[in-house]
């Protein structure tokens, strides 16, 4: 099974792997969510959605189904 941002635990860091799915909104890439960049899960709302991330220095929140599209390698 692939590891994605949705699998991270609070405080965990990971490296974003290749982005292949076109389900990932372009806006997310534009905010720095790109292959090779580091992502850290900062906080989760109740029921694990949405999630609060630090991606490449940008702080943003996304919903879980989008997070599950972004493959990562946990550091």
């Amino acid at each position: 099974m692939k590891t994605t941002i949705a699998d991270l635990k609070i405080g965990q860091r990971a490296l974003i792997k290749e982005i292949t799915s076109d389900l990932i909104p372009l806006k997310l890439l534009e905010m720095g969510c790109l292959p090779g960049n580091e992502v850290q899960l900062l906080q989760m709302a109740p029921f694990q959605c949405p999630i609060y991330l630090n991606v490449n220095g940008s702080h943003l929140a996304i919903r879980k189904e989008v997070a599950a599209q972004i493959e990562v390698q946990i550091l």
């Binding site: 909104p25 806006k27 997310l28 905010m31 949405p50 609060y52 940008s58 702080h59 943003l60 929140a61 996304i62 919903r63 989008v66």
Partner: peptide, 10 residues
């Protein structure tokens, strides 16, 4: 088309 992405500003 728009997705939910929100910036968490300082």
């Amino acid at each position: 088309k728009s997705y939910f992405v929100i910036e968490m500003p300082g």
